[in-house]
Design a protein around this nucleic acid. Sequence first.
DNA 1: CTGAAAGCGCTAACAG
DNA 2: CTGTTAGCGCTTTCAG
Lengths: 348, 348
Amino acid sequence: MAERHVTLRDVAQVLGVSAGTVSRALRDDPRISPATRARVARAAEQLGYVPNAVARSLAVRASSILGLVIPNVTDPLHGQIVTAFEQRAVAAGYTVILASGLGDPAREQRALRLFAAQRVDGVALVGSILDQRTVQALVEPTPAVSVAGEHLALASPRASSPRGSVRVDDAAGMQAAVRHLLAVGRARIAYVGGPNVASNVIRREAAAQALRQALGDGRLRAFAGDWDVWRAPGPLAARIAAERPQALLCFDDKLAIALLDALRDHGLQVPRDLAVVGFDDIPFAALSNPRLTTVARPAAEMGRLAVEMLLEALASGEPPPSRTLPVRLVVRESSAPAARAVDTPPRA
Amino acid sequence: MAERHVTLRDVAQVLGVSAGTVSRALRDDPRISPATRARVARAAEQLGYVPNAVARSLAVRASSILGLVIPNVTDPLHGQIVTAFEQRAVAAGYTVILASGLGDPAREQRALRLFAAQRVDGVALVGSILDQRTVQALVEPTPAVSVAGEHLALASPRASSPRGSVRVDDAAGMQAAVRHLLAVGRARIAYVGGPNVASNVIRREAAAQALRQALGDGRLRAFAGDWDVWRAPGPLAARIAAERPQALLCFDDKLAIALLDALRDHGLQVPRDLAVVGFDDIPFAALSNPRLTTVARPAAEMGRLAVEMLLEALASGEPPPSRTLPVRLVVRESSAPAARAVDTPPRA
DNA sequence: CTGAAAGCGCTAACAG
DNA sequence: CTGTTAGCGCTTTCAG
């Protein structure tokens, strides 16, 4: 950006026309004669003219940029969301700028401030712990949508989804998982928690309730996790090995896979000794050994929808209504029936 | 971005000073009296002034934005690179804008053009198939660095690394892997390829050469892969099962893990029947069953370095010299010695 | 220490 | 169909 760039005026001068004309010609304004339009196009090409989006943004007061803040690109599910978001954004003529919050509210706020300064046209947050009000205050008047928000208030039973949020039916997923486990003969079920965020409590509660409904009393054992469970699942595995539940409902796939690994160290065989169910259906869930039964969250759909809601908000000026997406139980080896001890079942 | 934003002049007017003064005060220009600086700060705060980075960019002709194009955020290694890149960029006061090329040259070029229009201060490409010359032409005069470039010319033995590129010593990694396999008694080694990109041929050649050096003749069996190997490793696994090599050197971890899974379907046990080695050391490599031996690429270092080279180029005006980073062999269960058939070895 | 004025590159009325 | 004229909001000489 140091040296001079070719400017609109440069090409105008070469052609002996006005800058306005060149501008219009380049953006295919219908009232420019095809003849000059062609001349302009050629001249621009030859001079190596690259339009300055910054100047354009300033003039039209819109940047064609969407900001996305995500806890962690490294997470497979988040990665899929980012990909879908970016894809859809590009298709609509937008560029996306990215910031990772790492689950730290301060960082997320900083990112939002940055986006506001950059005058992005819209922002989306994924798995944010921030509440919608705080977000709005930071980016006003830019529309914002929250995908799979994790603000704890969202977990309360009577929480109404704030407008402009994409949610996933975690509770239904957990209920399906519980029913499945009961069907394969695993009634002594334990929930293995993750960090203390909305989805964690929603999933735990849903599992507990489903179990209560089916069995008539509340006997969901719960192992509490924290932000560190994924990295150090050893101690958790030890506690689990000691209690020997018949099935584990894990907060997410990463945790489930880490546990699959840690449980091996304790001599427990899945699914023979106990069943394990994950959440998300990340790509590796289908490749673990044993392959992981899990509740699939529609990652691509979440990313795509976020962009579409933003576009809608941009068009209408109103924050779009909230949407909640369905999940799907994917049954694999890790929750094979209790009766037949299956170690490496043949696959079709 | 629809409604009016508070502007510099707005706060100037409220205070009865000039816009220039407010501008200087806000950026802590030393020649503004502490008194007015404080007044300005307070007024800006109260009015909810959010500086317009777009206008600023236009004025200073620098955007404080770095563009990053990456094949696929979904890939664990790329995710780690993005994270490190973004982290380092933010630390240096930059925002990053992202585009995924999906391995498609056309998309990558489009992304670069977009970045150029956006007047990013620097661009980094990861695993790009584009050659440095093309890239430079598209973003001139913006500095560009290429990380783990995959342009096929890079694979030729006498290819000099173009300036401004971050490379990884793939060949050394493969040699270490071969030596390791020979040491554990697996001499009939096969290389399982990925898509036809530079790193794939470099790795294959390095493995072949290492084997030749050690054994005195060229007997590296090679299974060719393509862009689809990861999704459909079945047929590949069948061919491998038929040939029964003693060890598999895989193009990358994703492929290795997919094969681990597919080989199970063919009744082959790793490492008893054959050893498997991956490349990259993605997080799941440590959690697969069996845990995967692999050559670790320093993802975080790659992302960090890319930013630093860009900063250097920005400061000096020169493209920084190329750097090549070391890799590290990580031995795990999947390549346990051939003699002792180890299925689930105890871990410390 | 602060104000005035010019300009970054582009768009958008408004004339003609 | 095209030229002219103002800005968009901020920085930055140059005066004072």
